[in-house]
Amino acid sequence: MNKDLISGVVLLAVSGTYYAWSSQIADSTLSDEVGATGLPHVLSVILAILAALLIARAILLRRARTATAAGTDDESDAGLPRAIGFLLLGAAYVFVLPFIGYVAGTALLIGAVALYEGAPRNWVVLAAAVGGAVFYWAIFVKLLGVHQPVGSLFQGMF
């Protein structure tokens, strides 16, 4: 199966799911003629038509033409596992942030990403991670006054 065919099927599924969800939107006595479901229904139909066109084109053309014009960044999916791994580091950061807080979480994130991206395991990674976390804490928390998570482990220390 080529990428366009898979994309078309996925978009068709998105369209169907979106339509089903939009049908569950509550009615309101304040609603106008179009209503809260009006645009969602139209959008799901448009997406379904576009998905069908994509599928039809993919089937008709045995080899999908790769768009190489400006604006699209086609690339191989060989790097997908590594890219997913990178994203999971971010997901882990979101997960641990409420427990260990902003400074420790950010230090861990910078250090983990640096090691994941091939930095040698030495004191430089540790220094960069701690220095970076303190630097961002100074900017966001101290300078801009943004309340970043303190962390349940360090509650009352900051």
Binding site: F86, L109, I110, A112, V113, L115, G132, A133, Y136
Partner: peptide
């Protein structure tokens, strides 16, 4: 390696 970590954070 360091750039990615700093930008991500």
């Amino acid at each position: 390696a360091y750039r990615a970590g700093f930008i991500f954070a």
